[in-house]
Design a protein around this nucleic acid. Sequence first.
DNA 1: CATAAAAGTGTAACCGGTTCCACTCTGTTT
DNA 2: AAACAGAGTGGAACCGGTTACACTTTTATG
Lengths: 341, 341
Amino acid sequence: MQKQPTIRDVAHAAGVSVAVVSRVLNPGSGPVAAATRGRVNDVMQTLGYHPRTAARELKHGPATTLGLLLADVSNPFFARLADHVVQEAHARGIQVLLMTTQEDDRLESERLSTLIERRVSGIIATPTGNNLEIWKKLQDMGADVVFVDRSIPSLPEVDVVSINNTESARAATALLAAHGHRRIGIISGPASSTTGRDRIAGHRQALEAAGLDQDDLLIRSAAFRGAAGGDAVTALLSLEHPPTALVVANTAQVTTVLRRLAHAGVSIPDELSVIVFEDSPWTELMTPPLTIVRQPIDLLARHSVQLALSNASGQTSGKPTTIRVEAELIERSSVARPGSK
Amino acid sequence: MQKQPTIRDVAHAAGVSVAVVSRVLNPGSGPVAAATRGRVNDVMQTLGYHPRTAARELKHGPATTLGLLLADVSNPFFARLADHVVQEAHARGIQVLLMTTQEDDRLESERLSTLIERRVSGIIATPTGNNLEIWKKLQDMGADVVFVDRSIPSLPEVDVVSINNTESARAATALLAAHGHRRIGIISGPASSTTGRDRIAGHRQALEAAGLDQDDLLIRSAAFRGAAGGDAVTALLSLEHPPTALVVANTAQVTTVLRRLAHAGVSIPDELSVIVFEDSPWTELMTPPLTIVRQPIDLLARHSVQLALSNASGQTSGKPTTIRVEAELIERSSVARPGSK
DNA sequence: CATAAAAGTGTAACCGGTTCCACTCTGTTT
DNA sequence: AAACAGAGTGGAACCGGTTACACTTTTATG
């Protein structure tokens, strides 16, 4: 990497002071004669000058970088979220530092340290649920943290953008109940996650509204990573009274669940009706096409970026904002009446 | 964001000079008495001190940030690539600035400017194919550019990591030929992309080796974005002599192709044998499970990061490196003998 | 025990921008 | 004609780290 020209090189070559060059660089920061501006611009062009972000950021904090801290990006849900966040940020001239936690507390805390050292203007994160002290510290430092998808109840001061998990799960289970199912299973996220808990709560609401028994054996919490979804399926199928319908409310485990069902030779929807929380184009290509809960990822992203940046620009309303967007239940063909087997 | 403590605050509180604090911060940069080190560390702890990356980067270039410039991250292929790149980078203490081009030259050039201004230590990119001058300039600046997945032939000086596209497509088409297919179609990426061209070349090699006619009507180039894949399917199906087998060599268009086939009521593999370049878990869940070409994304990522960083550390071998990893053809059930209809 | 070598520490310059303030030079107002 | 506003510019301090160098104190060596 050979030496790049600095602002002083440009100033010298253009026969002006660095202050003038800086003003050319930041229109509105002071007056510059049109002729001078032209000359400076020409020099910058021929010298191939690019101002260094690092130097600029030394003065003021970087209002130009956003930290995006996700569990992982292999999961298409997070991938699409990342894509939209990046686009929203770029549209505002902001760059995104992407980090992943692999759902691991220790990694999460390391990533957070890095973000603190970078003095990023905002952080959008799917928290693992631990590292409470660090999140609190970040808040005290005045960092603009937004939790997306999940949240941490013991940190009520943080802005949150998520889908209405309770309602989505309620609607899914209600649909199955309406088809006449009386034993409806659910495989949700870990109980330590708000998404996991909220979806189970919604499920229970629907059961109660339909006047159905609440059999805790039909409620399974599976970790986000690994093959926990498959194991939950096996457990459900080997029950004395297995479910006739299943809500897969853990997006990260949908494919492992379906694989296990296929291996077990369970036919959908004849033997088992299925609704999945997942919006991949593949769900429609399955045989039968799957009934899904679609999460409006673009909205999640837009609101998150907006919150992270509006806070940064000092519009601290004081109260933390919680935005809950509605998911959409899309009926296809994986739900039928029970007992058609 | 309230005022954060600086190195001078720490120095003052610990009763030492900033030089000592800096040495504590960077072990190996000079001697510090054990007692002093302890005291300084304690002070940093209680003050909640975090050194600012921006200040550190002012001195030397940032050997700590990598630019990752992808088409988009909605595409699971790029998403998994991003995931692995981030993990590899984190393992080396490097952060990743994620940017997307949406396959748009103008956006690409904007992103590149940003990366130049940040003086990132390396760039891993899937180039759109344009912006030749900027890439060249980056090279002249001594930036460490690595093209991954695709490349630009007129920039032979850049390191490239990709799969062996020609061989992968050849193997796919050869498998279909071995099953007795004589009219084999291919839907590949745009002719402007190396992946698109190379896969078509491999396809032609296989046809020739099998002694089959080369009917250009069976060779379709579809853009990466939009629904071009579906349209290509329609075109192929409405041919006077439609193909009996199809290679979908454009990962971004696999689902649009399959959707169109489903809508057209084409049954796989009875009416049409299919091989897709795609490694989603969903391919195995389809009816029938799809025969696929699996791309070793982890290897692509590992090699890219390695190249981007090894160059950065001054091990410029002089000659550009090209690493080609082999894809794996995984036979499942979407290929059968023709005419079983 | 003399003396060289090494350990421990502090001062100040530097990285490359931004910005406050002083200054000059027009053109305008009374 | 004096007073003044404001455009245009430059000098120098500053942001928060790193580091070359000078200096003092220990420790090792013959």
